[in-house]
Design a protein around this nucleic acid. Structure first.
Length: 553
RNA sequence: UGCCCGAUAGUAUAAGGGUAGUACAUCAGAUUUUGGUUCUGAGUGUCUUGGUUCGAAUCCAGGUCGGGCAACCA
């Protein structure tokens, strides 16, 4: 029996539509404008639209909303397609609003003939002024009452390129005193002598969003056209065009966009971060873009899971970043290969160990019962983390200290016998002894230790670079904080450690594979990594209850 | 001072007139050759004032707070 899973408001609407026979199956669409890279907010929409059509039997179209040639580029089209695929979704049709320019033009002619549209010679300032305000009605344009013939003639002249940019617009003739500002004779077409990424120079008039989106939905027989809350007031116009045109009745539904703490989620702001070089590009691992998250080492599974868990509703929200991180850890814990890497080394010399080294076998992933093992070289001289040793340990510290014992992961238990310092008193080496009968998997020593440390053999370690990322902003909601959002950028969001010491197995690291550096976090190979210089991005840290304990003091 | 949308633990989401639940976060404990994972437990919530009702998070009315609406952007 299927478990009782509560429905979100869109699922309820769809189930009702299916039950009532209004629709036999559903069609949704994901309609990005190709003027930027996709981010987590889009991911929510993608998961929603594709998820819904999959769940209820139907399909989803990918439709690029490319009605504004001045901001849109093919580069973005490619990145968007790539990101949607990477997230794990398959669209039924790849479409463009520009595919419908001819249909839309004919729709416009039809509305002119019906007396529902007119050409206006006013400039944009005049049109804005005549629009009135939310509390004051607008006034009619002096060009509002032209004859159908004159309007047709002028509109065709617009199309034929007889006017310069801004000299004429086509407007819907609705009601200049309408309570909804969007119904006060909205602009349907504007003149732009601009090169379009798909139609090239065929058109010099381009439809506005409101005259393109709903009609495109209708032409594709989209049953449920899902968009974000700021389009709620547009719905009335959306319906008006469909009704006057007497075409397929698509319905628009709105949900609240997904915001996430400590980042921004608007293309405009993200573009600013890119252009003003606060980040390394759209796919900087600190960016909330799909490409950034991918580069950072997030998996599509974890992003989908995040969207599902965060849910959808109609109220404004700021979801905590910790939920995203939880989803990443949960997935990565299952799939990441365990490796040992020492970031900030201190040398350990095993005084009673022979000069010869041996290989110890360590599991790739203890969570995976079918997982393999790799051989790790163990020797007389090792590195451990400085943090894992304290000369004067606080209570509850169960790492290494003088006279104390710890296990080296997958190898032996060692005891710290002597702390070696230089002239300045800085600790430079720990002389330890190892318990030969305590070898992992074959431990007859009967010694119980509280701590297990990661380590590398000094002679066998390979140098790699790691990049540690922190939240991009210092405040939870930079967009609504006082002043400019850029004032809140976290200047310490990137820490590069050019050389850390990794176990040799990491030499074979590949992109697309995920690693857990034991006790350090999850890492993935960066795109700028090379054979000679391996670079790893930290996807997310491990949960660290000891760090929390230390912070509490 | 118009119209529209919204309001449930710290956060995000359920409950559709009948026990306010789940997840993340937080705290406590158990297990652990990762202070990871896993497991157990705890605390914290219906914006407000009235009304309808045996019974209201849910229905009604007023208020409060938050957001949106005056681009030839989407």
């Amino acid at each position: 029996m299927a478990e009782e899973k509560s429905l979100n408001f869109l699922e309820e609407i769809i189930e009702n539509d299916l039950k009532s026979g209004k629709h036999a199956s559903i069609v949704t669409r994901f309609p990005p404008e190709p003027n930027g890279y996709l981010h987590l907010g889009h991911a929510a929409s993608i998961v929603l639209n594709f998820g819904l059509s999959k769940k209820y039997g139907g399909y989803t179209n990918l439709r690029f909303d490319d009605t504004n040639p001045s901001t849109e580029e093919t580069e973005y089209v490619e990145s968007i397609k790539n990101d949607v695929h990477w997230l794990g979704f398959e669209w039924k049709n790849e479409l463009y609003a520009s595919d419908y320019f001819e249909d839309l033009y004919l729709f416009a002619i039809k509305l002119i003939r019906l007396g529902y549209a007119y050409v206006d010679d006013s400039d944009s300032e005049t049109i804005a002024r005549e629009k009135g305000t939310p509390t004051m009605p607008g006034t009619n344009s002096k060009f509002r009452d032209r004859s159908v013939e004159e309007n047709i003639e002028l509109f065709e002249a617009m199309k034929a390129g007889k006017f310069k940019d801004g000299e004429r617009v086509l407007r819907a003739k609705i009601d200049m005193s309408h309570i909804n500002m969007l119904m006060r004779d909205p602009v349907m077409y504007r003149i732009k002598h601009a090169h379009h990424h798909r139609t090239f120079d065929k058109w010099c008039i381009y439809p506005m969003y409101d005259f393109a989106h709903g009609q495109s939905d209708s032409l594709e027989h989209i049953t449920h056209s899902i968009c974000t809350l700021e389009f709620v007031p547009h719905r009335e116009l959306y319906n008006w065009f469909i009704e006057k045109l007497d075409i397929y009745l698509s319905h628009q539904y709105e949900f609240a966009r997904r915001n996430i703490s400590y980042t921004v989620m608007s293309k405009r702001k993200l573009l600013q971060l890119v252009n003003e070089k606060y980040v390394d590009g759209w796919d900087d691992p600190r960016m909330p873009t799909i490409s950034g998250l991918r580069r950072r080492g997030y998996t599509p599974e974890s992003i989908r899971d995040f969207c599902d868990r965060a849910g959808i509703a109609k109220r404004e929200n700021v979801t905590e970043l910790s939920l995203l991180e939880f989803c990443a850890r949960e997935d990565l814990n299952k799939i990441a290969l365990r490796r040992m890497v020492v970031f900030d080394p201190i040398k350990v010399v095993l005084t009673n160990y022979s000069e010869e080294n041996e290989m110890v076998s360590v599991e790739d992933n203890p969570e995976d019962v079918n997982g393999g093992f790799r051989e790790v070289p163990f020797s007389k001289e090792l590195y451990i983390e400085q943090d894992d040793f304290m000369e004067v340990p606080p209570k509850k510290f169960f790492r290494l200290f003088p006279g104390g014992m710890v296990r080296l992961k997958g190898a032996y238990i060692i005891k710290c016998d002597e702390v070696v310092k230089d002239a300045e008193g800085k600790i430079i080496q720990l002389n330890c002894s190892f318990i030969s009968e305590s070898k992992s998997g074959n431990d007859t020593s009967n010694i119980k230790v509280k701590g297990t440390l990661h380590w590398v053999s000094a002679a066998h370690a390979i140098p790699v670079e790691v990049r540690l990322y922190d939240r991009l902003f210092k405040v939870e909601d930079p967009s609504s904080a006082a002043g400019d959002f850029k004032d809140y950028i976290n200047e310490n969001s990137l820490e590069i450690i050019p050389e850390v010491y990794a176990e040799p197995a990491l030499k074979n690291a590949v992109t697309g594979e995920h690693y857990q550096f034991l006790r350090k976090g999850y890492f993935a190979l960066d795109k700028n990594s090379s054979k000679d210089k391996l670079i790893f991005n930290r996807t997310v840290t491990l949960k660290d209850t000891w760090a929390k304990e230390v912070k509490k003091g």
